[in-house]
Nucleic acid binder design. Structure first.
Lengths: 263, 263
DNA sequence: CTTTTTAAG
DNA sequence: CTTAGAAAG
């Protein structure tokens, strides 16, 4: 059984200070897809010493974004960024080809999409990046191989994926135009393992604002995903969001999404 | 007995979080001269509710400098800043005239001089401000009244006022030109109560860097003072720096200088 | 309400 | 090494 976890850590230093290390020791994922690392390369390596293989896309803007892949399996290739010419060093996309124990390959991707704010340029950047992701997803399915794209997409797909969906119909992260991207990806064969193996909902959510009692009230959003190609999806056995009460310690505003694959 | 304390709090919010409130309850000064308040007016007032009279000079630059006077005695006048035309709102000088219980008046000043860095414009600003202070001190002595100027002058007067004096002969805070200002003020009759009542030294120091083990090694500087006019100085009975072991909790990089006056 | 960075000390 | 503010989430 191969365990792949995705987690927006909201600053890996803060996360470890708040107890991420305990979760890691307990869960022991084989592959960890990280978003919002918010640290330089050398610093990330400190948290994953001997035994881990690392891929990391640091953002040019210090302390912002940053995606990483920590893997117990060796990496045969690493690809950083999406698109060309246009800002590729934004710390939002990193891929690694892994060598499975029984032989064969698995491509894992850690993705971090823009949060976006309606009426600001960040929304245009989000859509532009979504277009790049769409193009790359098409390439990744074309080969027919095993691929998982995990990360914080900063979009809730449907009403069951967000507690206060009525109040957020005009909010970034639940706009019809954003959700349509997910519709298209799923229509093209990408499988939403968190939903398929997580029940019909509402929930489980993966993100809660730090403000007020959002977490205690489970007033959250499901914006973290593991999207798998057909070749991989059928091997998925369980999908779990590691939040309270099973995992009580809150070391990020997101909770990890952990999927077990029969590989 | 009237107790006047001066303290560079290095951010009043952080100081209270670290235990300044306990010190205040224990020491119960009648007058508290504050430097580096680093907070807006309204916020300072929150820490000194009913029973306190407040004077406050907030710096224009938010979160920087800021001097205040908190007094159990009523204030008959408040004067903010030094000089005119030139930046007067730098949060470095505030005066209050207090009404003594037995009748009579006492002028108290809270002063915060620039730290300064050799070879930078901040050094010129420090000297320019020192000139303004010299002029104001002359005015304050002219009346022959009781005046105390307390605060962080960011200058150690003599070798006994700094642990590593040899290593700091070319460092801001111990430059001959800076120390000459203190010489002139003392020559003009201002009395250095911390030294007069604190023994011959070396020490006691009032500031230690946060870095390394400066505090544990008592590798400090005496840069906080209570300077009194002749009319007031003879009433001073004790001068104490509230640092470990008597006061163990460190809630600022400075320790308070507390003087008891027989008034 | 939290993150890392910044400038200042 | 710490403070508070800044920008971003």
């Amino acid at each position: 059984m191969l365990t792949i976890a995705t987690a927006n850590v909201n600053g890996i230093r803060a996360a470890f200070k708040r107890g991420m290390g305990g979760w890691l020791d307990d869960r022991k994922p084989d592959v960890l897809l990280l978003q919002e690392v918010r640290a330089p390369d050398a610093l990330l390596a400190d948290f994953f010493p001997a035994g881990w293989h690392l891929a990391h896309s640091e953002a040019e803007a210090k302390g912002r974004a940053g995606v990483g892949i920590a893997s117990r399996l060796p990496m045969s290739a690493i690809r950083i960024g999406l698109g060309q010419g246009v800002p590729t060093n934004t710390g939002r996309w990193v891929e690694a080809d892994l060598e499975l124990p029984e032989g064969g390959a698995l491509t894992v991707v850690s993705a971090y999409l823009h949060s976006g704010t309606v009426g600001t340029p960040s929304m245009d950047e989000k859509y532009a990046f979504l277009d790049l992701v769409s193009a790359r997803l098409a390439e990744l399915t074309a080969g027919g191989g095993r691929v998982v794209v995990g990360g914080d997409l900063n979009i809730a797909h449907a009403a069951v994926d967000i507690k206060n969906w009525k109040g957020n119909l005009k909010a970034a992260g639940f706009l019809p135009a954003e959700r349509a991207y997910l519709d298209r990806w799923f229509g093209a064969g990408w499988r939403d393992l968190g939903r398929e193996l997580g029940g019909d909902g509402p929930g489980p959510y993966t993100w809660w604002s730090w403000r007020g009692k959002a977490f205690d009230n489970d007033s959250g959003w499901r914006i973290d995903y593991q999207l798998a190609t057909a070749a991989l999806a059928d091997a998925a056995r369980t999908a779990t969001v590691d939040r309270a009460p099973a995992y009580d310690q809150r070391w990020s505003d997101h909770a990890p999404l952990v999927v077990e694959y029969d590989l």
